[in-house]
Design a binder for these strands. Structure first.
Lengths: 200, 200
DNA sequence: TAGCATAGAGAACTTATTGAGAACTTTCAA
DNA sequence: TTGAAAGTTCTCAATAAGTTCTCTATGCTA
């Protein structure tokens, strides 16, 4: 049982709402979130999501829905307590979100690389960090990409497209220089969508 | 039951679309992707791909197709392809591990903070990053800690213990100076065990 | 050259999806 | 207790998308 586009939007909103508030949204809140003015329509979506087995409905009740599946089961999330740096003690920060670590970086066609070397150090990507890469043949100007040079050497760099069609790969390290290549020599393996580091 | 060239193109596009968006494309999206102006033609290709058993069709529905085969399971791990920076094309690197994102940072009594400001920039912790903090009353010399000053201000700093019992909190930013406090003024909320960042 | 498979355009039709809103019942908090 | 707010069940309409055709063109090959 598949969901339509708006049904998926609604499901996304519901999950998001649960993560943020710890309880289910009202139909009117979903409607607001989706930019819809009819709660009848929203109700139809909610029923479709329930039919697909993604949530469970408690008829009649206000906020009468529960998440099903991993969403409610195994805990893969940590509380997001707030911002650090200034002002208040952390414990006092309200509006407790949850951040789902398995969702944070997951996506189709992604992989992880362990970074070696300091070429992206000024971008906060250090030696030994992991970068999450989305496999894609094209990037936008300014993206951090994994690029293959002459089908031999793989590197992590900022990418810039030049007017003459050539491509400049720019390290984030004051000690290293950008280098420009003919577009044919550069094969983009993917773009960096995340980075993580473990201290211990 | 082989596919023609354009049918293969269409199948490729569909797989790609699933990978990128997590759901099926419209006929018109496939048409756009292949540079075709007739959805009737695309429909013929899609039927051929279904007849070949590569996808499953749900007649009538918008985006009514499903990939068949490996593409269905939901994972919380990503392949760790290897190290980047030098030498070989990534694809050639063997020894494929999987890295489980929900395990990587999970642990008892941990929480996440969103970093504000540049005080730890030289440690690769940038404005907007998330840090994973293990709630602990004590830290080791040199750890990055979340410390509460005079029960009022929470900060993220390196911690150093001095011989006279005082505590020095040291930013990782050349523009800022370490400050030394009496131990009684510093309350350690936890130590940073991880850091992550999401691009775009 | 005739026959066939592949390719693409597009018309005509059917159905799905989306949204609004009315009318009704039930829940819940003051 | 009670009434506003919330959920439920409809219908109506507009639009977008899928389906089924026919027509044409272009190679390939028997």
């Amino acid at each position: 049982m598949d969901l339509s586009r708006r049904e998926r939007d609604a499901y996304q909103f519901i999950r998001d709402f649960f993560a943020r508030h710890g309880h289910a949204p009202l139909l009117s809140e979903i409607a607001l979130g989706l930019g819809i003015h009819s709660k009848g329509t929203v109700h139809r979506y909610v029923r479709a999501i329930a039919r697909a087995g993604l949530i469970e409905l408690v008829p009649g009740r206000h906020r009468g829905m529960r998440l099903r599946g991993e969403a409610s089961g195994r805990k893969t999330s940590l509380p997001l307590l707030g911002r650090i740096a200034a002002g208040q003690p952390i414990a006092a920060i309200p509006d407790q979100e949850e951040i789902d670590l398995s969702e944070f970086f997951m996506g189709p066609n992604r992989f992880v690389l362990k970074v070696q070397g300091d070429s992206m150090i000024d971008a906060g990507i250090l030696d030994g960090d992991m970068v999450i890469v989305a496999q894609r043949p094209r990037a936008d100007d300014g993206d951090i990409v994994v690029a293959l040079l002459d089908n031999e050497e793989a590197t992590l760099k900022y990418i810039h497209y030049n007017r003459d069609g050539s491509i400049t790969l720019r390290p984030a390290n004051a000690a290293l220089r950008p280098i420009t290549y003919a577009a044919s020599r550069v094969c983009i393996q993917g773009i960096v969508v995340g980075q993580m580091r473990s201290y211990r």
